[in-house]
Write a protein that binds this DNA or RNA. Structure first.
Length: 425
RNA sequence: GGAGACGUAUCGAAGUGGUCAUAACGAGCCGCACUCGAAAUGCGGUUGUCCUCCGGGGCACGUGGGUUCGAAUCCCACCGUCUCCGCCA
């Protein structure tokens, strides 16, 4: 969430920044109202509590001296009642303030171009050229079914639409991609691997910004009030919630492989075929906890680490910077890496690398002590896919397909795959 | 799932209704003294947050409620940890 003090001091500026996302002002006017109201009552009740504290110390003294405390106790009872009423009002406004604040998104970074949606995203660079074929290329779902390595029909029987069964070398390809990515990030990019729970509680979901606004996008386990994680960002970022880290612990780099679960509410009819949009998909995530002054450099290196996966797989991609209108709720700036997908005839998102600045850290209360005796400050958090595994598999199948229906295995994956080519068995 | 114990600062731990929560006691850590240096010893320091008319004040003993003039202390719920039993990959 945003710093309430910043909203107090620069209300118009913050409001304007938030409004560049479209969709109005996200109730930021209410934030100001509740904040004012809360502070007004708080000052009064705190004075009364001070009086209560001072006077109640006289009671044991009077008792010891054998004097009557009746008059004082009666007076204190009255005071106590008043405090109770005002305390309830303070809590009420505090809760309203927090709710309102949780529904205000992050303010975009100054470098982010103002725009309405993804059509205003800016392409920053391209790597490689879109793959050309001298035969009629097929989509990955057709390739996968023909090779008997992807089975969408049987997945639908046991779970429903938007699920996939991987089989044989298909399952092995998915696993190879995961291991390749994890090894690259841990061995060459300095990330420490985490294997987190795949379900989290409400507080974790709120810490990274999925709740309270996006509950309908999540799979929910009512029995325990758990949510299936929509991304490893949630468990991994919240690893350090309510902690004060020491300065020499930073930066912290974590990578995690997890399945991700998304209800895909409201996206019916989009990407209905293949691996692109699933209720469950696998992902290797990159998460960073850094000092504020370094976070934009860290965003560059995080993005570079994710790009490196596609470079080594030798698959063409491009990097775009999202406009204010396309930016995720908690993000201040995001680079999307988009992979060339022949069946779509265009670049498709395969990673989203974001700097959340202190927005998530404030929600999850993740701080660090700048120097020995210094006051704790919020860290900056970043994350990005490194990469989405299903989409990577789809991109491999499509970009490496051969005229005879087989798929050549990218060089770097061969040690993991044990074969150079996927052919129909 | 059943029975029980526990949750206080960096750690161990005391406090079981009042005027000792920055919190006893012990350890750790930081500084100073002593020393050629170290150990030992001695002295001092060592939470966070909110409000503020910048004088000061409020809150926090796992979390949230309740009782009371007053709660770390009594009551209720929840969360977590540990032990025993049951079940189980």
């Amino acid at each position: 969430m945003l710093d309430i003090k910043r909203i107090r001091e620069d209300f118009e500026g913050v409001k304007k920044a938030v409004e560049t996302r479209g969709n109005g002002d996200f109730g930021i006017e209410d934030v100001r109202t509740y904040d004012l109201k809360r502070r007004e009552i708080l000052s009064t009740v705190e004075q009364m509590k001070n009086e209560q504290k001072v006077k109640s110390k006289q009671i044991p003294v009077l008792k010891k001296a054998g004097e009557s405390t009746d008059a004082l106790m009666a007076e204190m009872k009255e005071l106590s009642e008043k405090i109770k009423v005002l305390d309830a009002e303070v809590s009420e406004y505090e809760e309203k303030l927090r709710d309102a604040l949780l529904n205000v998104p992050n303010t975009p970074y100054k470098d982010v171009q103002i725009g309405e949606d993804d059509s205003d995203n800016v392409e920053l660079r391209r790597w490689g050229e879109p793959t050309k074929f001298d035969f009629e290329e097929k989509a990955h779902w057709d390739i996968g079914e023909a090779l008997d390595i992807l089975d969408f029909e049987r997945a639908a029987k046991i779970a429903g639409a938007r699920f996939t069964v991987y089989k044989g070398l298909g399952a092995r390809l998915e696993r190879s991609v995961i291991n390749f990515m994890l090894n690259l990030h841990t061995e060459e990019h300095g990330f420490t691997e985490i294997l987190p729970p795949f379900m989290v509680n409400r507080m974790a979901m709120t810490g990274t910004g999925q709740l309270p606004k996006f509950e309908e996008d999540m799979f929910y386990v009512p029995q325990k009030d758990f949510f299936l994680i929509p991304t490893a960002e949630v468990p991994v970022t919240n690893l350090y919630d309510n902690e004060i880290l020491s300065a020499d612990q930073l930066p912290i780099y974590h990578t995690a492989y997890t399945p991700c679960f998304r209800a895909e509410a409201g996206s019916a009819g989009r990407d209905t075929r293949g691996l692109i949009r699933q209720h469950q998909f696998q992902k290797v995530e990159l998460v960073k906890f850094v000092k504020p002054e370094t976070s934009y450099d860290e965003l560059e290196s995080l993005t570079a680490a994710a790009e490196e996966v596609l470079k080594r797989l030798d698959i063409p991609y491009r990097v775009v910077r999202l406009s204010t209108g396309d930016l995720g709720f908690s993000s201040a700036m995001t680079y999307d890496i988009e992979v060339w997908m022949p069946s779509y005839g265009k670049y498709v998102e395969i990673s989203s690398c974001s700097n959340f600045e202190d927005y998530q850290a404030r929600r999850a209360n993740i701080r660090f002590r700048p120097e020995e005796k210094g006051k704790p400050e919020f860290v900056h958090t970043l994350n990005g896919s490194g990469l989405a595994v299903g989409r990577t598999v789809a991109a491999i199948l499509e970009n490496y397909q051969q005229e005879d229906g087989s798929v050549v295995v990218p060089e770097v994956l061969r040690p993991y795959m044990g074969v150079e080519k996927i052919v129909r068995k």
